[in-house]
């Protein structure tokens, strides 16, 4: 009975298969180590160059022609104001679109077209959004140049599709049986969505939103087009004041001829990375804390 399994040939086959398993694991591990090591290298260089410049003065100052007095606060405040505009606009628009498309939209060719458009919108290069912002918000609507309002509007256009896509996936993941249950006790479709589907989808929606916002926070190209690259020596007071943003500040400083700005550049990168890591951390926390398991 065991004759087939006892042969020399079979033993060789199994040995070969085990070897292939080990080889694959090593390959996968190697891929991770390779990519992570570059990230670690970047972090080490940035920390080495920038940590010395990270003092209170740097965190509270604004841009200056003198590297020793130049600080990050102006750009940071610009980023925060821009993000506030982006979030205020893209979150409700994105969530409402996702709910409509997933729960209410009729299934026809027009809706298919809308879906394809939204998916494509998420893949449009960001510089194009910058041009759009310039043409529509500044040249047509006459909104102020270099302002967080326009920056936020432009980035909201970019972030909205990301929120729609992640929102739809989160809504789709809510089991249909919950909708049936709510409808069967006489809940209206809107009640079903807001009482049952949305609360269950919210962790996923928030995760997608935060990731979209993190992407917007790091965006530079579209803001170039709407003039957020000016030299701003005073922090903006509101969303219509001229402002810069963190990645733009990094770009401007890295362009300076004065060697003293190298430290500023690295310090600003550290600040930006801390923000991005914090946002991603929040996304992971929300996902783990509020996810309902079935």
């Amino acid at each position: 009975m065991n004759s087939v399994w006892d042969t020399e040939q079979m033993a060789r086959r199994i040995a070969r298969r085990n070897k292939a398993e080990r080889r694959f694991r090593l390959l996968g591990l190697g891929a991770i180590v390779l990519s992570l090591s570059f990230l670690v290298l970047l972090l080490v260089i940035m920390l080495k160059n920038g940590l010395g410049g990270l003092d209170w003065e740097f965190l509270t100052g604004s841009d200056s022609t003198d590297a020793s007095t130049a600080g990050i606060w102006g750009a940071l405040k610009g980023s925060l104001l821009t993000m506030a505009v982006t979030l205020a606009l893209s979150f409700p628009l994105g969530v409402l679109s996702a709910i409509y498309l997933e729960e209410f939209a009729p299934k026809n060719r027009w809706i298919d077209l809308v879906e394809v458009s939204i998916n494509n919108l998420a893949a449009v290069p960001s510089i194009i959004f910058g041009l759009l912002g310039l043409a529509v918000f500044i040249n047509t609507f006459g909104l102020p140049r270099s302002a967080p309002l326009v920056g936020g509007l432009t980035l909201a256009l970019m972030t909205m599709p990301v929120i729609v896509i992640s929102g739809r996936n989160a809504i789709k993941a809510v089991p249909p049986s919950i909708r049936d249950a709510a409808l069967a006790v006489g809940a209206s479709p809107v009640q079903t969505v807001f009482h049952h589907v949305l609360p269950l989808a919210l962790p996923g929606i928030l995760t997608g939103t935060i990731i979209g916002m993190a992407r917007a926070l790091g965006e530079t190209a579209p803001l170039l087009m709407i003039g957020m690259r000016a030299f701003i020596a005073t922090p903006p007071d509101g969303i219509t004041d001229p402002a810069s943003v963190l990645p733009m500040q990094i770009f401007l400083w890295s362009d300076e001829i004065d060697r003293a700005f190298v430290q500023n550049t690295s310090a600003a990168i550290i600040v930006l990375l801390v923000f991005l890591l914090a946002m991603n951390g929040l996304a992971i926390y929300l996902r783990n804390k509020f996810e309902v398991r079935w």
Partner: peptide, 29 residues
């Protein structure tokens, strides 16, 4: 649907408390 209730093949309680599961219908009506 309030007058003609339904029980499904797979038990599908809301992921809420026992009390809330029962109270939901009366509350929305």
């Amino acid at each position: 649907r309030a007058r003609v209730g339904m029980v499904f093949q797979k038990p599908n309680p809301f992921p809420k408390s026992i009390y809330e599961n029962v109270a939901y219908g009366p509350r929305i009506h």
